[in-house]
């Protein structure tokens, strides 16, 4: 996609804190990124890295309290989603921005048939009549590759398999022709052969419908297959941003490099011993004042425990939040 294109979604300095018993959890810390039209943006990170909370915050999907979005702007369609009234936000959610959750069983309502659930956004957001909505719902099920769509509209979620349920979720998210689709680990609960089907479907849909997609995952393999650009998150921050090919060829942040080494593969050379990342992910009890990865990092030095590194540009569309320059093998200038 052209680099100069106006982003459809622009997130600046997002900060989300959870108030919990005995303290706070700083789940998302000054996260900034944008999403260009027609792009598939992969967001990778381990559990607790803040990837899901980031996306939930920008759509106001987190319960407040305990969550508190303390800072930031989210520009979509010329408005700041963090400051608009709940009524406007409701027209955006499920309308212009679709959301697919990880577990299709808990996010579909078991007491309504799937037809009703696909028609709900169509009638609420697009003002369709029941008849029009039924026709459109059938089209949507066909679009996501569910055979015998007309009959299946009357079926309930438990009558679908895991992969088929996730297809229904995607159909609901696509119902109102969203500009942006946010998919939160949509294939994590699925088997590999079913995951391959869903990935294929998403790639195809994205090309045909031309929407922008944010794909959250912990699986580097999935990202390698579908994303145009990748954000790597760690400890509530974006530690690296890069075009996909570049990220895998030339990873800059020590965390990304370590992560790529620790994942075994099914083809090519086989390591006699897996590389490991020592230690545990950080507990985000306070606003970080140092690099969150420093305790597990093999190139950390004094500065890493004194300041939190900003994101340094390291190439075209590629930046890394690290004081250490992987190319020169030396610390960056202060």
């Amino acid at each position: 996609m052209p680099d100069g294109a106006q982003p459809v979604l622009d997130v600046r300095d997002l900060k989300t804190v959870f108030k919990v018993r005995g303290g706070e959890v700083h789940a998302v810390n000054n996260v900034s990124f944008n999403l260009k039209p027609g792009e598939l943006l992969g967001v990778v990170g381990e559990s607790g890295s803040g990837k899901s909370v980031t996306m939930m915050s920008l759509l106001g999907l987190l319960p407040t309290p305990p969550a508190d979005v303390q800072n930031g702007t989210v520009t979509f369609d010329g408005q700041d989603l963090l400051s608009v009234d709940p009524e406007t936000l409701r027209t955006v959610r499920g309308g212009k921005i679709g959301f697919v959750f990880q577990d299709p069983m808990t996010s579909l309502n078991p007491v309504y048939n799937v037809g009703m659930q696909i028609m709900e956004p169509l009638r609420k957001h697009m003002g369709m009549t029941k008849k029009e909505a039924t026709v459109r719902a059938k089209e949507l099920l066909e679009l996501v590759g569910i055979p015998d769509a007309e009959r299946r509209l009357k079926d309930y979620p438990h009558q679908f398999s895991g992969g088929m349920r996730q297809r229904v979720m995607i159909a609901i998210a696509l119902a109102c022709d969203p500009k942006v689709l946010i998919a939160d680990e949509p294939t994590t609960a699925l088997d590999v052969t079913i995951q391959a089907q869903i990935l294929e479907l998403m790639k195809d849909l994205q090309e045909r419908l031309g929407m922008a997609v944010i794909w959250i995952t912990h699986d580097l393999g999935v990202v390698a297959g579908i994303a145009d650009r990748v954000l790597v998150m760690y400890g509530g921050q974006i530690v690296e941003q890069s075009p996909t090919r570049e990220l895998f060829k030339n990873p800059q942040h020590p965390y990304t490099r370590a992560l790529l080494k620790t994942v075994p593969r099914v083809s090519g050379g086989r390591e006699a011993r897996l590389a490991i990342i020592e230690g545990q992910p950080p507990i985000l009890g306070a606003q970080p004042t140092a690099c969150p990865f420093r305790d597990r990092c093999d190139v950390a030095f004094d500065r890493c425990s004194q300041e939190n590194p900003p994101r340094y540009a390291v190439g075209a569309g590629h930046d890394a939040a690290c004081f250490y320059d992987a190319n020169t093998g030396a610390p960056r200038d202060a």
């Binding site: 052969t193 294929e200 699986d219 390698a224 895998f248 083809s267």
Partner: peptide, 19 residues
């Protein structure tokens, strides 16, 4: 062939069997 490998080049070249 369904296992996604962490290698973008491989994704482009490999011939997948999708069940």
């Amino acid at each position: 062939s369904a296992v996604p490998e962490p290698d973008p080049d491989l994704h482009d070249t490999m011939d997948r069997t999708i069940l």
